[in-house]
Design a protein around this nucleic acid. Sequence first.
DNA 1: TGCCAGGCCGGGT
DNA 2: ACCCGGCATGGC
Length: 224
Amino acid sequence: MPEPVPQLAIYYDVLFRVHGPQHWWPGRTRFEVIVGAILTQNTSWSNVERAIAALRREKLLTATAIEKVSTARLAALIRSSGYFRQKARKLKGFVRFLQREHQGSLNKLFATPTGKLREQLLAVHGIGPETADSILLYGGRHKVFVVDAYTRRILERHALVHPKASYEEIRALFEQSLPAEPSLYNEYHALIVQTGKHFCHTRQPDCEHCALRSFLPAPVEVVL
DNA sequence: TGCCAGGCCGGGT
DNA sequence: ACCCGGCATGGC
């Protein structure tokens, strides 16, 4: 278990003051949240939105509908989200899992204890750590902090983790450093992604562009 | 024009 | 236990 890092709680307040509440996850239903979590893997949200709109238009935003549709048609409809053949199979894999392990019921799925459900999700083809945790937190309000590429990069630039820290290491760091509130985890991850959306992508530590940003790359102590 | 985006898998060390 | 190539579209 890592030691708590008090800067992480401070950094949350900074981001909240800068960006305000984010009202995440952008999904109308729990199932839609799960679909979005899979489709947005390494993909910009704007590309995912079109795909979800197409699924909605075709009445395919339910588990039973996804079960019935052919993988080929599903792939065609989610084309805009990229990796569309892979993701079509992933959606199919998830609804098959939901039916097999939870009788197709999201209530039963999310009533499963967090640790056990996380293991189950990770065993589904196409669901890795970030997708599993997004489903847990944003779909079911389970108490897990979602780590993504932005989280890692921000922590590295603030020198709060070593460059090759594992996903689990970073997740534990947040969960040890913050009050155990799903609503806080929710808002924090959303704020990090919002921050990342207007990230400077130059890797040089002395990039003048980055120097103009209040939250990067300076250590959190001197922010504000 | 090339690089990037809210990853994950399978095969190789 | 890591490391890497593949997967694919749309925006800037």
